[in-house]
Amino acid sequence: MRVYEFLARRNWPRTYTGKILLVSFVGVHVPMFGAVAYALLADSTPFMEQLDVLIAMLLATLVGTAATMFVMAALLAPVRRASEAAQTYLDTRETPRLPTRYTDGAGVLMASVQEAITRLDAAISVAEAERDATARNHNQKFRMLAGMKHDFRTPLTVILGFADLMKTQAIGEYGGAAYRDYAASIGRSGQDLMQTLQSVLDLSDAEAQREFEAERQPLDLVPLARQAAAQEHFHADRRGVSVEIDTPKGVVVDTVPAAARDMIAVMLQTAIARVPEGGRVRLVLDGSGAHAVTVEATDAVLTTEDLPASLSTVASGLESGTGEDGTTGAATPTTLRLSLIDTFCHAMNAKLEVDQSGERFRLRVALDAGAPALKIAAE
């Protein structure tokens, strides 16, 4: 990687093919340069007598260079196709058709890119199908609730109407038999409405709890954390941020795998985005107590402008970056990430706290239910 990084940092030649052809050109011409230097410096034969030989060597070198560069460009075609296939999928989500039957390095590269894109596209399709199914399910629930409007409206109309009659004493003073009958009707209507509401709430709570419990399972956080770190390697490497992982051999906790993995990834995203280029982020797993996941970012600060408005009440010690008090209400990338972390916390029965001091912040998540669930602190 050192030679590649040396040429890439100088950005010349711009393309990978150009870099290969430059190296080929230099390599092919080294023998000719050596022969010319020997003829001029070491050989006592007059230069004019060697001129025909040197011209023949030059022509042979040029022909060899052209042939070599042509073949090298052709051999780099698999690398170009793999790169173009990946970029095309990112831009248009068009699944490529790369050859997968070759077994050398370039063939393995094309086969790996083809398989990776195929798996990714299948996973995205499944996720989209699940999202659509969830949306349809929610729409059905809303339609069900809309269909129950009569069950809500009728008792409420009776309650409100009779209450107005009693308030204005339109049918006589309080204490008459009519008022007692109306009061009984109000009580019955209120009881009917309460039973209907309670049935809806019980159904909603039972379904939410069933879905949450169905997804929870014993899980080792160590490979999950490493997977999240690998997932964020692209963003960290582009900014020159080093990510250190400090974990015990195993941290087993009962939680929702997808939510835990995605939350760790978002925590890393938040830290990587806030540290300066060339900075350091540390991911630590604590297997004792509340089974905590901690992400520490050095030389980085969170401000009140980064907080979602819903989290302003749980924040302490944060200062404004603009000199204003409170959150601005504007959405920054950090604001959106903190909102997403808060959403994951609610999904896993977690709590969010934000605290800041100095030039280092720490994101801490306790995944066990009932433990102090989520803590974001800066020291």
Score class of each variant (00 low, 15 high):
S199L: 13
A135K: 08
G358M: 08
L109F: 13
K141V: 08
T17I: 12
L367I: 14
E296N: 00
L283D: 10
P46Y: 00
Q191R: 13
A37Q: 07
A208Q: 12
T313Y: 09
G172Q: 06
V23G: 07
G358Y: 02
Q227K: 10
G18P: 11
V71F: 13
T327P: 13
G187N: 07
L285P: 04
D121K: 08
G321W: 06
N349M: 12
M263F: 11
T88L: 07
V53M: 04
Y89A: 06
E324S: 03
V126R: 11
A135H: 08
P218W: 02
R153M: 10
R97N: 11
P308Q: 12
T65F: 01
P276N: 14
K351W: 03
A60M: 09
A371Q: 12
D202V: 15
A183S: 12
R210S: 07
P218R: 07
V266D: 12
R274F: 01
T68C: 08
V365T: 09
A331D: 11
R119Q: 07
D254R: 02
T303V: 14
T157L: 11
M48Q: 05
V251D: 15
R274Q: 13
Q87Y: 03
A123G: 02
T294M: 09
A133S: 12
A111F: 03
C345W: 01
I20C: 12
A377C: 00
L40E: 13
A178Y: 10
Q209H: 10
G289T: 10
L165R: 01
K249N: 09
L109C: 09
L51M: 07
E277C: 00
T154H: 03
A60F: 01
